[in-house]
Design a binder for these strands. Structure first.
Lengths: 164, 164
DNA sequence: GCTATGTATGTTATACTATAACAAGTCAAG
DNA sequence: CTTGACTTGTTATAGTATAACATACATAGC
């Protein structure tokens, strides 16, 4: 096990700071859009931010129920669905998992880079990817509404060190 | 329900011919690579080609068991896994489903366009998309081994007609 | 304040998706 | 004709997700 196996991007950073920053942005976004960032939803987002990696719905549920929230799947799924719809979290289909969005508020169709050794998930800037995808789709007359772009491979740390 | 709701690409074509062609290519590929395209595997591929749309593992299983093959999930999952590994089929994670590959043998990291109304799945050429994704990844020091690129939206037919 | 309305949460139950583990059969090489 | 690798079949279970209903909470209007 490495020291930074599940970093957001594949680089060190001030974890507490980025989580606090994201929460602040989520609050602001909710206020602006008139959304209800209720305790379960807020706590769910915090859990994702604290974990700092992709969590399954049942992982989230365990944490929520340990803190006195409901202990049935819909509790977690609903909170996660809300966060995803509001762009505060993303669903990583390859992992059947969810992760906090690191760029809330900015319109983006991110690409996720998933390390198959340490399970780190990075949200890569994907404007160019999305543009190419839009082009390929429009060539077929297809209109894209949402997209999932996920890649599996090796993060820098695992490529150089951990694999040895 | 439209007449061509689940077309491979969003265009009409000679269905029987394309399926036969795909099977021939699968046979050739297996012979060349020394793979064992056994009855279950061959039939699974045929089922995907005949359905001409993405099928869940249990849909495939139903058809297989109706024809005398095993009726337990691993039968379908193993055949599908084989086909995916050999590039003869693809897994559509967004739908928890599988679809026959329309370009077997050609190295490709396809993008899938999924119509949310008719569930048609098209395999779009995605060389440019993949190139952009590789670039985004390498900027972060990440090496991509496999990728899923899936988009949800409206196919030409549903956009113009069915939605009305 | 009080009630009506919409939204959110909690709970029960169940459906859907997927894999581990082992037994039995098949095939080709030696 | 036996070994060894692979394939298939089966049992059992794990993991993921949602439908449906009841309760509680918030806000707006009276």
């Amino acid at each position: 096990m490495q020291d930074a196996p599940n970093s957001r991007a594949f680089a060190r950073h001030d974890h507490a700071h980025c989580a606090g920053d994201m929460m602040a942005r989520a609050e602001a976004l909710s206020r602006d859009k008139g959304l209800r960032l209720t305790p379960v939803r807020r706590r769910t987002l915090e859990i994702l931010l604290e974990a700092h990696r992709a969590l399954g719905a049942y992982d989230v549920l365990d944490r929520l129920s340990a803190e006195g929230y409901g202990n049935q799947p819909p509790v977690a799924y609903r909170a996660l669905e809300f966060l995803v719809e509001q762009g505060l979290a993303h669903r990583i289909r390859r992992l059947n998992a969810f992760t906090a969005c690191m760029h809330p508020g900015e319109a983006h169709a991110p690409a996720f880079l998933i390390c198959r050794l340490c399970d780190a998930v990075a949200e890569a800037p994907a404007a160019a990817v999305r543009a190419a995808l839009d082009k390929a789709a429009s060539d077929l007359g297809f209109v894209i509404e949402r997209s999932n772009i996920e890649a599996l491979g090796l993060c820098p740390a695992c490529r150089t060190g951990a694999a040895a």
